[in-house]
């Protein structure tokens, strides 16, 4: 892969898209002395501190751990025999419908949207840094945080509920959530580069499109990140998938998630390269 873009081989996040675009679309002359991979470290470091420094990260953490809380209540509280079926329902209707998209929404829009809102993004934009790398660093940090939070939550909740009776199901749910959270964060990072109302737009997508329209019209499922995640979860769970089973094959889900993530990255980098800092006065 020739200089510039994040290569899938180096992806530090499990499930990071196989098809990352080959180079950020920057309007640069070949000789332009613009920095690339060498500044990823400082950018990632800055983004991490920015994300961890904001109070909303605590909220996101609590949100992400909600399934664990529910699992604990179910296991300890009822003495009720927690079955794999209950676990599937929890995963389908809570984790993949609400937790994963909302965690990704807050992380994705905070990673760069907050810097655009408060004006600190100017300090990044006035540097000879390829815009694709700024977007990539934001997606990397938000995605990694999302994977860590949602992954832990699904794994712990899954093991609490089905113990080791259905390891395939737990693994499937884990990978499905990871794939979904990566695609979601990429989309939401890009959304906040394109619009100052990314949070609203993101909520509209999650609640209206995925929550409502896509659940009624099966044809629109191919345009739903949630469905990609569920397809991957069902594919890995195999016979243990039960009601999680999907019309969309796992390979299709994976490829589409990778395409969505890559396109989101490309659009984000493209937009940031032509980004105008409005500062009235």
């Amino acid at each position: 892969m020739s200089g510039g873009a994040p290569s899938p081989g180096r992806a530090p996040v499990p499930g990071w898209p196989a098809a990352a675009p080959s180079s950020p679309p920057l309007p640069l002359r070949p000789s332009a002395p613009v920095l690339g991979a060498s500044i990823l470290g400082p950018l990632v470091n800055l983004t991490m501190r920015g994300l961890l420094g904001r109070r909303r990260i605590l909220l996101v953490g609590l949100l992400a751990l909600a399934p664990v809380g529910v699992a604990v209540v179910l296991v300890v509280g009822g003495g009720l025999s927690t079955t794999a079926q209950l676990t599937r329902q929890l995963y389908d209707s809570l984790v993949m419908t609400t937790i994963v998209p909302l965690v990704a929404l807050v992380l994705g829009t905070t990673a760069i949207g907050a810097e655009i809102d408060d004006g600190t993004v100017v300090h990044l934009l006035t540097k000879p840094v390829g815009r694709g790398w700024i977007v990539f660093a934001k997606m990397l940090v938000a995605g990694t945080a999302g994977v860590a939070l949602c992954g832990t939550s699904v794994l712990v909740a899954g093991i609490l509920l089905v113990r080791l009776d259905a390891p395939g199901l737990v693994l499937g749910m884990l990978v499905g959530a990871v794939v979904a959270v990566i695609a979601y964060t990429a989309v939401f990072v890009t959304l906040s580069v394109w619009t100052g109302r990314a949070l609203i737009a993101g909520l509209a997508y999650v609640l209206l499109w995925e929550g409502f329209i896509a659940s009624f019209f099966s044809g629109t499922r191919l345009l739903s990140i949630r469905e990609y995640g569920l397809a991957v979860a069902a594919g890995i769970a195999g016979p243990e998938a039960g009601t999680l089973a999907r019309d969309v094959p796992m390979a299709t889900g994976l490829v589409l998630a990778a395409v969505v993530t890559s396109v989101a990255f490309w659009l984000g980098a493209r937009r940031l390269a032509r980004f105008e800092v409005s500062d009235a006065g």
Binding site: L26, L28, V34, V122, T126, G130, R131, D279
Partner: peptide, 13 residues
């Protein structure tokens, strides 16, 4: 639209 320009330019917003 040319990040390379910031090799030569500094901005204090």
């Amino acid at each position: 639209g040319d990040p390379a320009v910031y090799r030569r330019v500094g901005l204090v917003p």
